[in-house]
Amino acid sequence: MEINHLDNYNIELSNIWNHEKEVFLYGLQQKEKTKYVISQRENMIDLYNHAMDLCVFYGYSHLNKKQNGSVYLQFRDIYREQKRFKDLITLGWFDYKGKLYYVSQNILIDRSFEYFHFFFALKVDQYYLDVFKMDSFIGYQLEINFNWDTVSLMVFLENLIVQYDFIHKKVRKKIKSLLTAIKELPKLSSEEKNNKNNPPSNTIKRSSDNSYILIGSKTDPDYFLKHNQKFVDIFEKLKENKYIHKDTLFIHFKAIFGGGCILPENRIHWTANAVDLKACIQYLFTKSKIEKPYSGIWRITTNCFIDKNKKEFNSRRLGNAVPKPDTEYKVRKVLSRFP
């Protein structure tokens, strides 16, 4: 069995379903749990208007007798002919209230969904395959779904391991150790809290020595969260066009726009040419997407990226590079949706 997208820290319907199906078919999971996952998947159909935007069955939003006639009957009969539960799971589609559905899209499940805790439990349970990646997953969820509210996350995780017995013992142990570590963090004094919420004016300048700062985030603390899908789309386009390495993590890509310190091992592996990188950063700067750094934009770039040979860029050479018009055109196409 292959590891199922552990580097993707989002909670996605198709990712979870494919993983649950796989562990069941490999005999690593009881039928009762898989049936419960199916019931929650059906709850999503009820809540989201019969999954018109969630589940696409071979080009149809769904198949039913009235609209699709013989096509529906053909697939329905195949479904009904399956005698074993295992065969039904293997089919890949399912019958619910007289309609046939097929889970095919990566639908993000967030805290606004009533059964978020259940799908969170299913996702975090996958990390028994690689516990080392759990810290990044929990950190990502703390930002995206808990808005840095550590107390809410702690209560949520405590309830989670009580509620769901199926969570693997390795994952359960890791969650308990994380909870202990969080509880042992020193408490901030009222003065320190006030300073944290109201940083001095020179804080951003010091941070900008390490990474870029989104101009939009200076007036809206939730800027990245509100535009998260756009950043995901750009991240995927950069991979598809071979600008960044295919194994790059989204959490590291996002970090270079946070104004904080970038660890050397977390720098983005740029697989295109230096002139392409110059064109990308220059585009973001001229379009007022990123703030002018205190100590020079190309020095910041060397903090955030390494070249195709995994070596450091030379800031002076980056600054002197001259992108050609066709290079700038390609960059504009990739970054056009940058918020």
Rank of each mutant, 00 (worst) to 15 (best):
A274T: 01
I251A: 04
F235M: 06
G260R: 11
E265H: 04
N309C: 00
T248C: 12
F250T: 08
P293Y: 04
K287C: 13
F313W: 02
K246D: 15
G259F: 01
T301H: 08
L284Q: 11
K254A: 07
N309Q: 10
I290E: 03
I297G: 03
C280I: 09
I244C: 10
S295T: 13
F313V: 10
L277S: 04
I290R: 12
D307M: 02
P293C: 02
K311C: 04
K237N: 04
K246L: 15
E265R: 01
I244V: 06
E312I: 02
T248W: 03
F257E: 06
S295P: 06
C280L: 11
N241I: 11
N303E: 05
H245L: 00
E240T: 12
P264Q: 11
K292H: 12
R299V: 05
N309Y: 07
F253N: 01
V275C: 12
C280R: 08
K242E: 13
I290Q: 08
Y283I: 05
D276F: 08
I300R: 13
I290G: 10
S295A: 09
K242V: 03
I297L: 01
K278F: 12
D307H: 06
I297E: 05
K239Q: 05
E312H: 13
L263E: 15
E291V: 00
K287N: 15
H269R: 09
I251D: 00
V275R: 00
F305G: 02
D276V: 04
N309K: 08
A279P: 09
H245T: 12
I290F: 03
T302E: 11
Y294S: 13
I290P: 02
I281E: 11
K292N: 14
T302K: 10
K237Y: 08
I251V: 12
I281V: 15
D276P: 11
F285I: 09
E265F: 09
I251Q: 01
N303S: 07
K239P: 00
G260P: 08
L249C: 07
A255G: 03
F305A: 00
K289V: 07
E312S: 14
L249G: 06
I268K: 09
N266C: 13
A274K: 02
C304L: 07
S288W: 00
A274L: 02
F250R: 06
K237A: 13
E265D: 14
G259V: 00
G258K: 00
E236V: 03
T271K: 04
W270T: 05
F285Q: 01
T286E: 15
I262V: 10
G260V: 04
A279F: 01
H252S: 11
V275W: 04
F253P: 01
D276G: 02
I281Q: 00
